[in-house]
Amino acid sequence: MAESASMATRGSNPEPLPPCPITGKPALRRIHGVSARLIEDVWRLGQGVDVSHLFKGVDRVTLYESPTGLVFFEPRIVGDGKFYEGYYQKWDVHEGLTRFKESRVDYSRAAEFIPAGAHVVDVGCGPGVFRTHLPHARYTGLDPYAGPDVDDVVIRETLEEHARKRPEFYDVATAFHVIEHVPDPLRHAEQMVKLLKPGGLLILAAPLHPSPLTEIPNLPINIPPHHVTWWNPEAYKALSARLGLEVVEAGTLPPSLHQGLIYWLHRFLARRTKGPPNERYIGHNWTWHASIVVAYYLARLATRIKPLPPGARPVDAFLVARKP
């Protein structure tokens, strides 16, 4: 659906495009809309999780692309404590991530940029497993929803609370698969930069678009209320420019073992998302539904034999930027 940089057209009525979450300038285009009811059904049937309380009063959610390359949902409805407590317990997400902590490429690549003796704050750290990659540095985890079994190296505070208490305190601030969950990514990154000393490093990893992840239709974990933005290196560069940071590296990462199920699911799909000109990622399509069910069970079998399929493409975007 072709649309101007400042106005979308639905029928004969012009529809103003929302601002980019990074720059505040109008979105480049409207990709497509989807009913909130369908999103609720995707989560209920695909993950066994009820998200209806988060969509009260919302009829429709729309996907847009920014001139920066960032893809974002409007409204950006994100999960609350109730949602994440139920979702993580049901699927034991932290256990899976902890099991593969040594082989996570985002962790190992980030650790290469962290000098000996550096004080690192890991935002949205969960159980704080990134610390296993930092025997040469001082680690502090930050997560207001940290579980009861984490030790005192993890602080249960929000990012804004911690930034008020410890401005310019850290040498490195990291966030692995966090920024795509927040409704205001610019504000989130600003607060992380506030924690950094002059010369400090901001390190981010987030889901990549386009990638195998966004080619899987109706994928619950990549839509609201879980992911509300999709990133790429150009979007990271735009974010860095807005924050006045020097880009050290903006690129993509090789696949990690903990992402194997996603890769095999993508490999076995008979039907994938639609690209331009009729681009679509979420929709009620029986061939999509049937394809995903079959691919999921095949993917579970495949991961037991081989963790990753050969030739797996990146699904993570990666940023390292320096504060002046």
Rank of each mutant, 00 (worst) to 15 (best):
G200D: 03
H226E: 06
L253S: 05
E279L: 06
W230D: 00
W264L: 05
V247A: 07
H188D: 08
H226F: 06
I221Q: 10
P277I: 10
A238Q: 05
A295T: 08
L269H: 03
W231E: 00
L265V: 08
P220M: 03
W264Y: 08
I282L: 14
I223P: 00
L243S: 12
H227D: 10
G275H: 09
W231R: 02
E180M: 09
I203R: 07
E249Q: 12
Y297E: 09
N222R: 09
F268H: 15
L202F: 03
H284N: 13
H289S: 12
R187L: 11
A238K: 04
A270Q: 14
Y263G: 02
I292W: 01
P210W: 07
P185D: 05
E234M: 06
L239D: 00
E190A: 13
S291P: 10
G260L: 07
P183T: 08
K274N: 08
G200N: 04
D184T: 13
T214D: 13
V248H: 05
L253W: 02
G283A: 02
I282W: 02
L261S: 07
H258F: 14
Y281I: 05
L208F: 13
L213F: 14
A175Q: 09
E190Q: 15
E190P: 02
P277E: 11
D171A: 06
L239V: 03
V294I: 14
Y297L: 14
R272I: 05
V193P: 02
R271E: 14
L213G: 00
L202G: 00
P254D: 14
P212V: 11
H177K: 07
L201R: 12
I179G: 00
E279M: 13
P255C: 04
P198M: 07
